[in-house]
Simulated scan of single mutants.
Amino acid sequence: MLTGLKTVSKKQKDQFEKEGYLIIKGLFSKQEIAEIDQTFMEMSKKTIKGCFEPIMDQSSEVEDPLKRYPRMMHPHRVNDVAMKYMLHPKVMLILSDLFNENALAAQSMFYFKPPLARGQALHQDNFYLKVEPGTCIAAWTAVDKADLENGTLLVVPKTNNDEIYCPELADSKESFTNQYVKVPKGLKAVPAIMNQGDVLFFNGNLIHGSYRNKTKDRFRKAFICHYAGESTTKISGFYSPLFREDGSKVEPELNPDSGPCGNEFDTVYPH
Rank of each mutant, 00 (worst) to 15 (best):
L200E: 09
W140E: 12
E163C: 00
D144I: 00
V183E: 08
K188R: 14
T141N: 07
M194P: 11
T159G: 02
V155Q: 04
A142G: 11
E149K: 11
Y180R: 03
N195P: 00
N150E: 05
N160E: 03
Q196A: 14
G151P: 03
A170F: 03
T159H: 03
E174F: 04
K188A: 09
F176R: 02
S175N: 02
S175P: 01
P184W: 04
V181H: 01
N195G: 13
V199G: 12
D162G: 06
L148A: 09
W140T: 09
A146P: 04
D171N: 15
V190S: 04
D144S: 05
D171W: 06
E168T: 14
K158S: 03
W140R: 04
L154N: 09
T141G: 01
F201V: 12
A170D: 06
S172E: 15
W140G: 10
N178L: 07
E168H: 05
L206Y: 13
N203Y: 12
E174I: 07
D162H: 09
T152R: 01
Q179C: 02
F176L: 08
K185Y: 07
K158H: 13
E149W: 02
P191F: 06
D147Q: 08
G151K: 04
A146M: 09
P167V: 02
E168C: 01
Q196M: 11
L187C: 04
N203T: 07
W140Y: 13
L187H: 07
L169V: 14
L169S: 09
F202W: 12
F202G: 12
L187K: 14
Q196V: 14
F202R: 03
P157V: 07
A192M: 11
F176V: 07
T141V: 15
G151W: 02
K158M: 05
D162T: 02
I164Y: 08
V156Q: 09
P157N: 05
V183L: 08
D162P: 00
T141I: 12
E174A: 04
L153T: 15
Q196E: 15
P167F: 09
A170M: 01
P167R: 03
N195W: 01
E149C: 02
A192D: 03
F202S: 10
G151C: 04
K173A: 11
D198C: 08
Y165F: 12
T141Q: 03
V155A: 11
T159V: 02
K182G: 01
V183G: 03
G204W: 10
M194R: 06
V190Y: 06
F201M: 06
M194V: 10
V156R: 02
W140F: 13
E174N: 07
K185L: 10
E163R: 00
C166A: 09
N161L: 10
A189R: 06
P184L: 04
K182Q: 13
G186F: 06
S175H: 01
T152G: 00
D162N: 08
V181N: 10
A189L: 07
Y180I: 01
V143Q: 13
N195A: 06
M194F: 10
E149P: 00
N203C: 09
F201I: 10
L200W: 08
P157E: 08
N178A: 05
N203K: 04
I193V: 15
K158W: 00
K188M: 11
T177Q: 13
D162E: 11
